[in-house]
Every structure is written in C-alpha cells, then in structure tokens.
Amino acid sequence: MSASVIDITRVRAVTLDLDDTLWPIWPTITRAEGVLLQWLGEHAPATATLYSDTAALRAIRNQMVSLRPDLRHDLSALRRESIRLALTQAGDDAALAEPAFDVFFSERQRVELFEDAHPALAFVSQRYPVVAVSNGNADVHRVGIGHYFKASISAQEFGVAKPDPRIFHAAASAMGVEPHEVLHVGDDATLDALAAITAGMQAVWLNPAQQAWPHDTPPHATVASLTELCRLLDDPAAPFPPASSQ
C-alpha cells in the first residue's frame, strides 16, 4: 500500500471516533459489568446467582442483538433490555432494569483516556471544529472532554450506525462543511476508515497494533497514535510507516 496521500489543504473539520480511539473500551466495559453484578447481588440476588460473572452478563447482552435487531444501533437499549431479560429469567422484578442500567451506564462513563488523548484533542480542536461520531454510548460531557467538541453524534441518538454514510454526513452538516472537507479519525478499519472514505471524506486509520489493512481501498493516512496524528496535521510531509496490505 502506498504512503500517506492525505491532502491537509482540503481539511476544514475533523470527526473522531471515541471507543478505542480516545480510550481503551474493554477495560471500561469489564469494570462496568463488575459494578453491575455487584449491584445485582444487593438488589436482585436471584439474577446475580443465575448470571454469576461478567462473562454471563456479556453473553446475554450479545444474545439481545439477535433477539432485538431493531436495537442494534442503540447499545444503551441493548444493555438495558438484556438486564431486563436476565431479571425476568431469574424471577426478579423486571422494573429493576432501569436502576441497574443507570449503575452500569454511570461506570461506563469512567474511561481512562490514552495518555496522549488530551494533548491531541487540544491540538486538533484549536485548529478545526471537531465532532464525535460513535456507535457507542459514551457521553463526551460526562467523560470530561465535551469542551473539545462542537457536537457529538451517536448511533443511538441519530438512529443509524457507522458504516452508514448518513451519520458521517450529519457530522459534516453539524460543522457547516461538505463531506470532502472532513477528515475522519478512528481505529476501526471498516466502520471508521473505509466508511468515512465511502462517505466522501478523507480518513486517518489509528492503528497502534500495526495490523494489516483489510480492504482494497487504502486510508489516506495511517498513524500509530494520536501524537502521530498531530504530527501529521502539523506536517503532512512527515513520513509514517504505511499499513501493510494483506
């Protein structure tokens, strides 16, 4: 695959993925599931016994994707309804799903940002309007980074998820620019980079693990960290190792 072909002169705005782009998501989810399980032990002991570990909680949440495909874009609703199903199966009060989810959701917002996230967000947001585009249910304001963003568009609020071009186009509209004037940054090769390219944007693939690029159409640039992203935006001629192709 060729080296960076990004055209910084076209960029008038930036969109950013959240989970696994600004912070690692699975440590956060695992901790939130642990807090949920502890809460169930106190308030719904039969459910806590039936679903005795975080793996079981995650399994029923994944099962809900099949049971309620209409909620596929809404991770909060999927989690809430999976808790409701677990309560029902265990014979506990299904109404406990609401406070149980609130406990989970509050802990889910306690993310640990990558070390370079705050400096990178400050750097980018001083130069461009920035909009978060996420399939997840993180709240940038509760996380504590809302001041860097002009807007935040989540799949659950917008009604469709990445890779649908409409969510990218909505982000461009929120910043008053055309899609080709937007640079999208994210860690997922398909849902972020390729999807943004399909939506008419330039794309930077955040690839710290140096994985092989899985598609025919390459991203406009590949970086290993948010610090490298800032260097790229500051000096697009700076060399970065390109992602290898399959």
Score class of each variant (00 low, 15 high):
M1Q: 11
P241T: 13
P45T: 05
R110F: 03
R108L: 14
Q38G: 13
S152K: 07
P69E: 01
A155K: 06
R84C: 04
A132R: 09
P99N: 03
V14R: 01
L16E: 02
G91D: 06
A174R: 00
A132C: 06
A48G: 09
D53Q: 01
D187W: 01
Q63P: 01
A170N: 07
R79I: 11
F105P: 05
A174Q: 05
L50K: 13
A199M: 03
V124S: 06
A238L: 14
A122K: 15
V131P: 10
S125P: 00
I60W: 12
A44W: 02
M1S: 03
S4R: 05
T49Q: 15
P99W: 09
S76K: 15
F104N: 01
G146I: 01
R84F: 00
L50D: 08
G146W: 01
L57G: 02
E33Y: 12
P163E: 11
E42G: 09
H73N: 05
Q210W: 09
L37S: 10
D192I: 07
L191I: 10
G186H: 07
P165N: 10
D116N: 08
Y51Q: 04
V124K: 02
N207T: 10
S52H: 15
A193F: 00
S173V: 10
W213C: 00
D216C: 13
A122D: 14
A199H: 04
A237H: 13
S244G: 15
V223Y: 00
L85H: 09
E112D: 14
R68D: 06
L85K: 08
F114M: 02
I197M: 14
I29K: 00
V124M: 11
A195V: 12
L229A: 07
L232A: 09
A155C: 10
R142I: 03
G136V: 00
A170R: 08
D139G: 04
A117R: 05
Q202G: 08
D188T: 07
F101Q: 00
T9W: 09
V177R: 03
L71A: 09
V177Y: 04
L22P: 05
L121E: 01
P99C: 07
A48N: 09
V177F: 06
T47E: 05
M64S: 03
A95I: 08
G176M: 03
V131Q: 07
P129Y: 11
S134F: 00
E115Q: 13
F158Y: 07
Y148E: 00
L206Q: 04
S66E: 15
S244I: 11
R166H: 13
E115D: 13
A3S: 14
Q156D: 12
L71T: 09
I145F: 06
F149S: 01
T198S: 14
N137M: 10
L18C: 12
S225Q: 07
A203V: 00
H141N: 14
A13G: 09
I145S: 02
A203H: 03
P69L: 04
S106C: 14
P179Q: 11
L67P: 08
R110Q: 13
V131M: 08
E112T: 15
V177N: 03
H180R: 12
V65D: 11
D192W: 01
V143A: 08
S4M: 08
T21D: 06
A212P: 14
A48Q: 09
T47L: 06
F158Q: 03
A243L: 10
R10C: 10
R166N: 08
S4E: 09
A122F: 12
A221E: 04
D53C: 11
N137V: 11
